[in-house]
């Protein structure tokens, strides 16, 4: 770039405090502890006061749904940016988890306290089992095949009239009150978010990232990549099933609308907006996108037009994603240097 003073380029340098807090010396001063803790606390406290701050009955329902989309976005980001599997099967995970929780609740009479963990783990096992045949696929082929799963499942339920058919399963128990519902959901969301952040930097997480970077080299290292891909799909689909189970207990109903493609597509949009590969970005993306989508309901059928415009603006002006941008500003300073 040429300015008045001649050719210059922008240089980015890590802040000293960022470099220092990279090691164990971070505990040496309050300033550095604060540097590390404040962003995390903002997120945690922010999420925890959100249910208190929202008084409107309609918006209280919305933030529960946002939490579910945040889980799905997290699951999408993990599988895409840390394992290299771009899965469009989000709706399938939600459907499997949802139907499982509904069946466990209505047929066996289990309370949400048991159905939700059982649906998350059992649903993850089912999803992983069904996705096993497509694990050798890479890139867009994996995406296309996973997209088929929710579509096929919905049509099968419709055509064979199983699992309640088009009526779905009604009479699912709800949560005792909205505090239990929202705080358990947000608590799990935070737990999974920080858990995943640890996981991807552990040795096993590096194997996942290795599969994304270069699966041939992982094979040549004597590691069975199918095992690890299956493990990653289990983790990711478990989050989706957890979201599905929550959704069913919130709506007190399970039906084929839980296999709707929204659950596959909106997580992608929130990952794009929030910044892929940051894990926390997609969560924030969901917290921005879903409420925007609700606000735009006032525009009636034009809603989707405005929604698309907002998405396009994000992609054009902040294509790296909000969190990538924010992290850069937080950790680095920029200056112009003469070339």
């Amino acid at each position: 770039m040429t300015l008045k003073g001649g050719d210059v380029r922008q240089e980015r340098i890590d802040r000293g405090i960022k470099v220092r807090t990279g090691g164990i010396y971070a505990v040496s001063s309050w300033k550095e502890i604060g540097y590390l803790l404040i962003p995390r606390l903002v997120l945690i406290v922010g999420l925890l006061i959100l249910p208190l701050a929202v008084t409107n009955l309609y918006w209280q329902r919305v933030i529960s749904i946002v939490g579910i989309y945040a889980l799905l976005s997290l699951s999408f980001d993990f599988l895409t940016h840390f394992v290299g599997l771009v899965s469009l099967g989000g709706a399938f995970y939600v459907g499997v988890g949802g139907y499982m929780a509904a069946i466990l609740n209505t047929k066996l009479g289990l309370s949400p306290l048991f159905t939700i963990p059982m649906a998350a783990l059992g649903g993850a096992a089912i999803c992983t089992l069904f996705l096993l045949p497509c694990l050798p696929l890479r890139g867009v082929y994996f995406s296309i095949v996973t997209l088929m799963y929710p579509l096929i499942t919905a049509r099968i339920i419709e055509a064979l009239n199983i699992l309640g058919g088009t009526d779905g399963i009604v009479g699912v128990a709800s949560f005792p009150n909205r505090w239990v519902e929202q705080y358990s959901l947000f608590g799990l969301l935070l737990l999974i978010l920080f858990g995943l952040r640890r996981l991807v930097n552990k040795d096993i997480g590096l194997v996942f990232r290795g599969i994304k970077d270069n699966d041939q080299a992982v094979k040549a290292s004597g590691i069975n990549i199918t095992h690890y891909k299956a493990a990653a799909v289990f983790i990711s689909s478990g989050m989706g099933c957890l979201g599905g189970a929550y959704l069913v207990h919130i709506y007190m109903w399970s039906g084929i609308s839980q296999l709707a493609l929204d659950f596959s597509i909106i997580p992608i949009a929130s990952t794009v907006i929030g910044g892929g590969g940051t894990l926390v970005g997609p969560v924030l993306g969901a917290f921005i996108l879903v409420p925007i989508s609700e606000l735009l309901r006032a525009f009636g059928t034009l809603r989707i037009v405005f929604y698309s415009l907002i998405l396009m603006a994000f992609i054009i002006f902040r294509s790296e994603g909000l969190m990538v941008y924010a992290q850069r500003k937080y950790h680095q300073f920029e200056r112009w240097v003469k070339v």
Partner: peptide, 22 residues
């Protein structure tokens, strides 16, 4: 060459070291 480009050089070796053989 097939390194893991997004990882530092030494972290590239974590993956083979994680293998059952290692």
């Amino acid at each position: 060459m097939r390194p893991y480009y997004s990882l530092p050089a030494y972290k590239n070796l974590i993956i083979p070291l994680f293998s059952p053989r290692a």
